[in-house]
Amino acid sequence: MSSNDCVKNISTSDWEKAWANEVGSKKRQKKWTKDTPKIFFEKMAVKDEYHEKLIPKLILNEKDTVLDLGSGEGAVTSLIAEKVKSVTALDSSPVMLDMLKQRIEHYNIDNIDIVEMDIEDATVDNVGEYDVIVASRSFMGIHEIKDTILNINKIAKKYVFLVVFGRNNWNLEKKFYKSIGKDYPDFAPYDYLFNLLISLGIYPNVENFDLIGNRKYDDIEDAFIRMKWKMGNLTEDEIDKIKPFLKENLTLNKEDGMLENPADKADIVLMWWKIK
């Protein structure tokens, strides 16, 4: 039996269970809450190599309506808004949406609407139909993955674009967890999502962005804040170990004055399909 035959013999429920087992028995704890220190959008979302490669991949025109699922502070949302009739930014975090509101006001953007909602709760009945759905790095922690996919396939009229993490991602965080003797709470592998889509009769185009650049930080405090709020399951003693770890593992880039780790690159995969 070939590997392709093996994949065909695995049911939707099998892939759904495999995904759920990786995600965990319940929704992940929100990283950005009312207790998160005040951060301005300029600090969190700077246009970078990822954005430059993503936007040309999206099939958009000036008459399109777009639903941005898990919009966050709106770095992608605002770039899409430049190319379409309107964008609805949907996110469950008031902190992220506050930063999006700052962005909208700062740049005087008039075609972005905001909906505070969990991605899993979005249906055609409560958000309506849109020409295009974009979910930029926001699907990997979703527990009810099959129902969410089926819902977005009803909401979208033309295209769905999902940006997910590859297996070689977050190496700096993984190294930190190893240094403190803990297993890294990784996302479900993207290939589970790919096979789940196939089992549902959705045949996505798949492309790895192969990004060249790595993440950069103004200073140790900047790196600490950005790492700390990704690690909600750490004890206070373990959090105290983050700064010493960063001091040991980040180096100064003399050309731009930023701290970095050359191995700390994002592994990004784009899956997209046309609605039949």
Rank of each mutant, 00 (worst) to 15 (best):
I10P: 00
I10M: 11
T12A: 15
D14H: 11
W15C: 07
K17G: 01
A20G: 02
A20C: 07
N21T: 12
K26W: 01
K27F: 02
R28E: 04
Q29Y: 09
K30W: 07
K31W: 12
W32T: 00
W32Y: 14
T36W: 04
K38D: 09
I39N: 07
I39T: 14
E42K: 15
A45Y: 12
V46S: 08
K47P: 14
D48I: 00
E49R: 03
H51R: 10
H51C: 09
H51A: 12
H51G: 15
I55V: 11
P56A: 04
L60I: 04
E62M: 06
K63L: 09
D64T: 03
T65L: 01
V66W: 09
L67F: 14
L67G: 09
L67D: 04
L69D: 08
G70V: 00
S71P: 10
S71T: 01
G72A: 10
E73Q: 12
G74V: 01
A75L: 13
V76H: 05
T77C: 11
T77E: 08
S78D: 08
A81R: 02
A81I: 04
A81N: 08
K83V: 05
K83M: 11
K83L: 15
S86N: 13
T88Y: 08
L90W: 10
L90R: 04
S92K: 13
P94E: 06
L97Q: 01
L97S: 02
L97R: 01
D98E: 15
M99S: 06
K101V: 11
Q102L: 02
Q102D: 14
Q102Y: 09
R103L: 14
R103M: 07
I104S: 05
E105I: 07
E105V: 06
H106C: 11
H106T: 12
N108W: 00
D110L: 05
D110Y: 01
D110M: 03
D110A: 06
N111P: 11
I112S: 04
D113P: 02
I114M: 06
E116Q: 15
E116A: 05
M117Y: 05
D118I: 02
E120A: 15
A122K: 10
V124M: 05
D125L: 08
V127K: 09
V127C: 12
G128M: 10
Y130M: 10
I133Q: 05
